[in-house]
Design a protein around this nucleic acid. Sequence first.
DNA 1: AGGGATCCATGATTGGATCCCA
DNA 2: TGGGATCCAATCATGGATCCCT
Lengths: 223, 223
Amino acid sequence: MDHTLPPKTQSELLKRAQAIAGLTIAELAQRQQQAVPEQLLHAKGWIGQLIEQTLGASAGSRAEPDFAELGIELKTIPLNANGQPKETTYVCTVPLNDLATSWQASWIRQKLNQVLWLPIEADPELPIQQRRIGSAILAELTPLQDQQLEQDWLEHMELISTGRINEISAHHGTYLQVRPKAANNKALRTSTDEEGQSIQTLPRGFYLRTRFTAEILNQHYIS
Amino acid sequence: MDHTLPPKTQSELLKRAQAIAGLTIAELAQRQQQAVPEQLLHAKGWIGQLIEQTLGASAGSRAEPDFAELGIELKTIPLNANGQPKETTYVCTVPLNDLATSWQASWIRQKLNQVLWLPIEADPELPIQQRRIGSAILAELTPLQDQQLEQDWLEHMELISTGRINEISAHHGTYLQVRPKAANNKALRTSTDEEGQSIQTLPRGFYLRTRFTAEILNQHYIS
DNA sequence: AGGGATCCATGATTGGATCCCA
DNA sequence: TGGGATCCAATCATGGATCCCT
């Protein structure tokens, strides 16, 4: 089995995801003829990319969901020893220019509207090879989630569009954070301040807090 | 002013509480002719007792609210620099024998049914003398709080009455915890295990988590 | 530079242990 | 011993910083 071609239907995508549920990372890597890194420090996105490759996501695309034709985004969720999400989830870059858009039309909402969530064991005690892939969850934003995300997004965009991006900290937002997304804290990018002057600022990304992904899991595995 | 006599009415109690709102501990201590300790490490209950004395609570009584005739219990709430409760709140000892009672008739519920909460600044940066007393809140248990506390209480009492008290940790209970309440961890007391044998165990107390007292504060100071 | 994410120092929380008084 | 509570080491959570790939 070597799924390099994108799945043609939602059902085909789900079938592929179900087929890898329960596998260890070592088993999946072998199928894909990949070597498993000893640690993720120097291979941070590796597992996500292994999964993308396996399910046939169109890698490297921009401003589009991973499965563009199906309108589905793929996201892995690292789980701690307790089965809870261990990290926030990166969604996409925060636009620093091109601010005149609505939540409905925004890039981030296009990505989050329909997501295939794939929980993956990530207890640091567990060697990467032995970590198991969980059962995929295909979830559409509920009206309530949509509303809550929109509210967070509006607050962030208000600050950005009034040139106060440097006032944003990761403390803002109920579900959605804005945090640095860069090679390091020297990687600056041009934005615009309150008086229309150019300013240098760190590039940022939108991240979903763990409380959001924890709710997704709870809604689907009522234990 | 020296209120050593118990207040005769609820209104008199509230008047006394309002009269000390805004005072510093130093000011109140002077009125009561008490010396303020430099630190609370060796005077842990001192502020609570200063307040009791001031408001005319019947000190040292047992199995009864502080203002027995009014059915009102007095509790101070230490606040951190952010105005949030800093500690859990001790309520009363957990009965290790005498287990055949209902929530309605229980000692703890008698105490919690009507409480005069008194917030007091307790930021460790602030010298004890300068800490201020807040505005008192007289609160009756809401039906929802009553239900939630009952559920926690039932779970704890189930474990105690089946001799599994040593399985209880402070992790149990949504609002109500059971934790050690003793001079030290060698102070043992006799209880009964599953087969009716005597066992030695630490004496325990019921404590309200800060999330409970935080809700009390939020309901009354909508800020 | 955008997409795939995790790292990890530091601050916040917690809960077992402890302290004084009558 | 019951009532008045706080202490504080250890754990948890967080969010600013960082890493690889195309």
